[in-house]
Amino acid sequence: MIEARVIRAWAAFFTAERRAATLAAIIMVQGLCALFFIADVIIDLGEGDHLDHLHMTLEAAASLALIGGMVFLMLELRRMLARMQEMDAGLRAARGRMGEVIEGFFDDWGLTPSERDVALMILKGFENKEIAEIRGAAPGTVRAQSAKVYAKAGVGGRAQLLSLFMDELLSGEAPAHGAG
Rank of each mutant, 00 (worst) to 15 (best):
I67R: 08
A34Q: 14
L77F: 05
D40E: 15
E59F: 15
E3S: 14
L66C: 08
H55S: 14
M87K: 03
E86V: 00
F36P: 02
A62N: 09
E133Q: 09
E168H: 05
F165A: 12
R92L: 07
E100Q: 13
T15E: 15
I38C: 10
L77G: 06
D88L: 15
L54E: 12
E133T: 11
M121W: 07
F37L: 11
N128L: 03
L169S: 07
P139I: 09
A82I: 07
L75K: 00
A9Q: 07
M1N: 12
A93H: 12
E168S: 11
I134L: 13
V149L: 02
E59I: 01
Y150P: 00
G178S: 06
M166P: 00
L91F: 10
A151L: 11
W109C: 07
A176F: 01
I67A: 12
G99T: 00
V142C: 00
T22R: 10
E76P: 02
A34D: 06
D40S: 14
V6H: 08
D117C: 10
G99C: 09
E86H: 02
S146G: 10
L45Q: 02
D44W: 06
C33M: 13
A21K: 06
E173K: 13
F106Y: 04
F165M: 15
D107T: 13
I43C: 03
M84G: 02
Q145N: 06
R158N: 08
L64D: 03
V101Q: 01
I42L: 12
D167N: 07
A24C: 03
T15V: 03
R78H: 12
M121V: 07
S146L: 03
F36D: 04
A147T: 03
E173D: 10
F14K: 04
E130I: 00
R135E: 08
A176W: 05
L81P: 01
